[in-house]
Every structure is written in structure tokens, then in C-alpha cells.
């Protein structure tokens, strides 16, 4: 396969090239998806723009009351970041479970998102955190909610010449989170179903456990990652009890819409969505 590649080490030159190139463009970040596909010979002819050394795509920082993660930040950097562990614990856990060490050293959060894969492991965590994606092109910047980014497997809202610039979300004091998945083995396995839960407990509540903030999302159980809104509403309405958690798990099972494929059966995925929710919240009981 014929590959043309350009290396960019500055955002301006990258966006300029992205705007002017005719035909298909791939942005080579960690390469952990692209290089596998190139090796398999399944990619169309394209110009590859190497972006792993563009400084503006790096860095994790708190800006005002928001956590900003550059699209080129690696899973290794995310899992090790004190800021992410504090403000986005579900995401830190998700990145720690992507691939193995070699994949985490290179693979980026931007690449994980851009694939628009329903099984991408960081995405349920980002849904649960209510992340906003900053997209940039030579025409300017815009912001889309992470939930609006993926349209279908492998299809996203990026326009020609546009890239993911950063992932931002509010720093919510007291935020806790859980990320978990079911897969064939611990390392290097694609999830059969995964979950991201982020919550802030209600400190006013004298007895029991209530939520000031709660968002739940499942991956690999629909064409895109899916927010479990019924589950959230139900759990936010009244303090948590064993009975209410069980009922929420049933709701989760009816809210997801999995298919059967090589990795798992629809019924199993549906059942496990409930189990993952139970495992995530039962420690609070």
C-alpha cells in the first residue's frame, strides 16, 4: 500500500496541511489502531499526518474550573496523572485497562475517541464525566458534547480538516468513579461490555446514600456508547438501597441494546450490564 506521510510538530502547520490536502487523511498519533490496519492492508490510500509531536495536543491541566486533557495524551500519562485520578477517577481506571503497557505508552485518548468504536474503553468514562470535546480546524474551534461525537461505528462528526484538540470537563468536588469491563482475559482483550460511572454523593443526607451527581454509560451494547438515563433518573430520585440497586440493574438490562458477535452473545452482554452496574455501586451500600 502506498502511504504518503508528513511529520508536523506545530498545530498551525498541521491544520494548514489538513485543510489543503486532497483526498483522505489519517492522523497518526499513537498508531496503535492505524498501524494494525495498515499491516492488515485494509486502509484506503491516504495522506498520513504524523501528529504525535505536536505540543499543543499534549498536557493535562486544570484551567479555571475545568480539567483539560490534550487529544495527544497517552493512556499511560492519563492513568499516572494525579489530576485525572482526582477529577476523573473513572477515566484513570479506563486508561489503566487499555491494552498492555506497550499500547498505553503510545495509544492516545484522541485516537480512542476518533475511532468512534462502540467498544473504546475510555468513552463510557468520558460519557459519565459529561466531557466536552474541543475540535479545531483552520476555520476555527468548536465544542461538542462527547455524546454527540460518535454517530455510528467508525463514523464521527469531524469535518474535513478538523481534529480533536482537547477533552474538557468540569472539576466536580468530591467526584468518585468506577470503570469496569468484561473481557476474555485481563490484558489486550476487547471488552464484551464495559461501564463508566461517575458520581458525587450528597453530603447533606443524614442517613443512607444519595447522589448529587450521577452519570452511567455502557459500551459495546449498542452502535455507539450509550448513556443509561433511566438508570440515572431512578437512582437519583431516592436514597440507595439494596432493593433499589437491584431494580436499577434490571433497568440497565432493558436500557442497553446489544448484538451478538464474535466476542459475545447479546443475552450475555445484557445480563452483564446489570452485573457491572451492581459491582460498581454495591460497595456504597
Amino acid at each position: 500500500m502506498e502511504i504518503k506521510v508528513q511529520r508536523h510538530t506545530d498545530l498551525d502547520s498541521l491544520l494548514k496541511a489538513a485543510a489543503s490536502i486532497e483526498g483522505r487523511i489519517f492522523y497518526l498519533a499513537g498508531g496503535t489502531d492505524l498501524m494494525v490496519q495498515a499491516h492488515a492492508g485494509v486502509l484506503p490510500p491516504a495522506t498520513w499526518l504524523e501528529i504525535s509531536d505536536v505540543p499543543q495536543l499534549h498536557g493535562i491541566s486544570v484551567e479555571g474550573s475545568e480539567l483539560r486533557i490534550g487529544a495527544g495524551v497517552t493512556h499511560h500519562e492519563i492513568m499516572r496523572s494525579q489530576l485525572v485520578q482526582t477529577w476523573a477517577p473513572a477515566l484513570a481506571q479506563a486508561s489503566a485497562n487499555v491494552g498492555g503497557p506497550q499500547i498505553r505508552s503510545r495509544g492516545t485518548i484522541g485516537g480512542n475517541l476518533a475511532n468512534a468504536s462502540p467498544v473504546a474503553d475510555t468513552v463510557p468514562a468520558l460519557y459519565s464525566l459529561g466531557a466536552q470535546l474541543h475540535l479545531i480546524s483552520q476555520r476555527g474551534e468548536r465544542t461538542v458534547a462527547v455524546e454527540e461525537f460518535a454517530l455510528a461505528p467508525r463514523r464521527n462528526v469531524l469535518e474535513p480538516g478538523e481534529i480533536i484538540y482537547s477533552i474538557n470537563f468540569p472539576c466536580r468536588p468530591g467526584i468518585k468513579g468506577v470503570w469496569n469491563s468484561m473481557a476474555q482475559r485481563e490484558s489486550l482483550a476487547i471488552s464484551k461490555v464495559n461501564i463508566g460511572v461517575s458520581y458525587v454523593l450528597d453530603p447533606e443526607l443524614e442517613e443512607g446514600v444519595g447522589f448529587n451527581y450521577l452519570q452511567v454509560a455502557f459500551g459495546a451494547v449498542g452502535p455507539t456508547v450509550l448513556r443509561a438515563r433511566q438508570v440515572e433518573e431512578y437512582l437519583r430520585a431516592e436514597p440507595l438501597s439494596a432493593q433499589r440497586l437491584e431494580r436499577a440493574c434490571q433497568l440497565a438490562q432493558s436500557e442497553v441494546s446489544p448484538i451478538s458477535d464474535v466476542r459475545s452473545q447479546a443475552d450475555y452482554r445484557r445480563a452483564m450490564a446489570g452485573v457491572l452496574l451492581y459491582d460498581a455501586l454495591s460497595p456504597l451500600l
Partner: peptide, 26 residues
């Protein structure tokens, strides 16, 4: 040749990477 086995692991800037998934230009 697809990031699964780690036989091609080298250090890049002190971190382990699969060299089969890195393009030379990188």
C-alpha cells in the same frame, strides 16, 4: 505485527513500546 505479542518491544523515551506499531518517521 499487530501489537498483541510484545516480541518487538523496545524503549522509546524510556517507555516500552511495540516497535511494529511505530512508524519510522515517529
Amino acid at each position: 505485527g499487530q501489537g498483541e505479542c510484545g516480541a518487538c518491544t523496545i524503549f522509546m523515551d524510556g517507555k516500552p513500546v511495540d516497535s511494529c506499531l511505530v512508524m519510522t518517521i515517529q
